[in-house]
């Protein structure tokens, strides 16, 4: 009887693995952002962004820790986390969406729209992001950039510092996926 249970368990696990082969993950995704003003240029980069795509459903998810962003100045890192993004309260930024008209069998670089929900600072907004999708050795590389408005995410900037921080922040991303294996 016990052997039967183990057999069924293995069977279930096996079928489980089968569905997972459609999924690709990256644990070292790169996201950087830029704020250019006449007073001050601010840029930061996060090299530990997690992202997963499911090519059977054309779904994508991205998750990152806000305090993993590195800045040129250590004080900027502190201000970003403490005073603006409040990473004590909202430690992560996430994205969840669908890649529209994504064709996994296409070997050439394709440009597609990703539509979904972007959550930063606890606030969720519907966004559409243009991305290029490259197929490299049976896996995928996603590349793109987009812009977000600081105001949309309820990030408070004191009036005296308003000239230092751009109203619209440009964001770049690059995800090199690998087959997802548990």
């Amino acid at each position: 009887m016990n052997k039967l249970i183990i057999l069924i368990f293995l069977l279930i696990n096996f079928t489980d693995d089968d569905t997972k082969s459609d999924q690709f993950i990256t644990r070292q995704g790169q996201v950087s952002f830029f704020s250019y003003t006449s007073v001050e240029d601010i840029e930061a980069k996060n090299n530990q962004v997690l992202s997963i795509i499911d090519i059977s459903k054309n779904e994508i998810a991205v998750s990152m820790l806000m305090n993993a962003f590195v800045f040129k100045k250590s004080l900027m890192h502190e201000h970003f986390n403490e005073s603006y993004i409040e990473s004590d309260l909202y430690p992560k930024a996430t994205f969840e969406g669908n890649i529209i008209d994504f064709d996994p069998s296409e070997t050439d670089t394709q440009t597609r729209m990703v539509k979904g929900k972007l959550t930063i600072h606890g606030i969720t907004k519907e966004v559409e992001i243009k991305t290029t999708i490259e197929q490299v050795n049976g896996s995928f590389v996603l590349n793109g950039d987009f812009e977000v408005t600081v105001k949309d995410f309820d990030i408070k900037i004191p009036p005296i510092l308003a000239p230092n921080i751009a109203k619209v922040i440009s964001i770049k991303f690059k995800f090199e996926y690998q087959h997802y294996e548990k």
């Binding site: 489980d16 644990r27 997690l50 998810a61 502190e78 996430t94």
Partner: peptide
């Protein structure tokens, strides 16, 4: 077992990513 299996498949991609975070210590800032 079936329940477990269904729950694994039903979880969405974001939840899956939650479990992928490396166990690096997070220190209190400022």
């Amino acid at each position: 077992l079936f329940c477990l299996n269904v729950s694994i498949q039903a979880q969405d991609l974001l939840d899956k990513l939650e479990q992928e975070y490396p166990d690096t210590p997070q220190y209190q800032l400022a």
